[in-house]
Design a protein around this nucleic acid. Structure first.
Lengths: 146, 146
DNA sequence: ATACAATCTGAAGTGACTAGAGGTTCAAGA
DNA sequence: TCTTGAACCTCTAGTCACTTCAGATTGTAT
């Protein structure tokens, strides 16, 4: 039984960081804000993580990459820890987030258009422009969006 | 001449906020970080803004809406204040920013796709899912992006 | 004259980390 | 076994672009 503990690969924080692509400092931060439960420690007080931690951190990383807030992730994790709870909440969070993402995309597209226009008017020749970019930024009226 | 001062509509901070869509606190913050020059004050120490301030703040607002950092805006404003300086910098800033915007759009598109997939697997029925969203977030391998 | 909304300052809080100081522990080579 | 030196520890403070708050003062309409 103490064998089993040794068979599960138990890793220090640096290895966990490498495996998940989350920085060491960020891992400690996640522990501090109670996203990641405190792991076991060595005699010398160093963190040692098991497979559960790797999985949980991967979940967190993935969700953060998808743009979920730490707070949403906390809820999602609570749901995943207690499967008896209804998953309506998880669905609601995802759908809300999808809405936000779409909204952001739409806004960025129109910004892209405007930046293209602005950057094109002054194509970098030092002489000819004086200065279209600044004028464009000053003059909101040329701007196409809503 | 003191007439002229009265003819230019001189407005308190709340009105400036309303006219530009920038919050009162944010205006004071911009003054603090030297984006907006300190305006005149009344006897009782309240800020009174003129047309120049309205224009400058509109410039700042527009640039912020476009996602330029406060630091970039500081540079842009310096260029616009000193038209004798080459506008290469302004162009470089815009082009760099356009690159960033395009990158963000690309990332958000792939996130949108994934969120759609995730949200679709659990369409909100309380019973059938246990819970696809959480599984999807836990399992990075299903994820399509690089 | 009085009420009350708007304004003032300065400090602290937000989110999600990131960086640094100053000390301790672990693992590998001599 | 001893000794490096990389990795680890805690705690504090800094980042960005604001936002919020407390507590005091001012401007304006009745």
């Amino acid at each position: 039984m103490s064998d089993r503990k040794n068979l599960e690969r138990v890793v220090p924080i640096g290895v966990l960081a490498e495996q998940t692509g989350v920085k060491v400092e960020t891992i400690r931060y996640y522990e501090q804000v109670e996203l990641l439960p405190p792991p076991e420690r060595t005699e010398g007080n160093q963190r040692r993580y098991g497979r559960r931690h790797v999985e949980r951190l991967a979940f967190i990383k993935h969700a953060r990459d998808l743009g979920f807030s730490v707070d949403s992730i906390r809820t999602l994790l609570k749901l995943s820890d207690n499967p008896e709870l209804p998953c309506d909440q998880a669905h609601a969070i995802s759908v809300a987030h999808l809405g936000e993402v779409r909204h952001k995309i739409a806004r960025l597209r129109s910004l892209e258009k405007e930046l293209e226009r602005i950057a094109a008017t002054c194509s970098g020749g030092v002489s000819a422009c004086d200065c279209a970019i600044i004028e464009a930024l000053a003059d909101h009226s040329q701007c196409a969006h809503h």
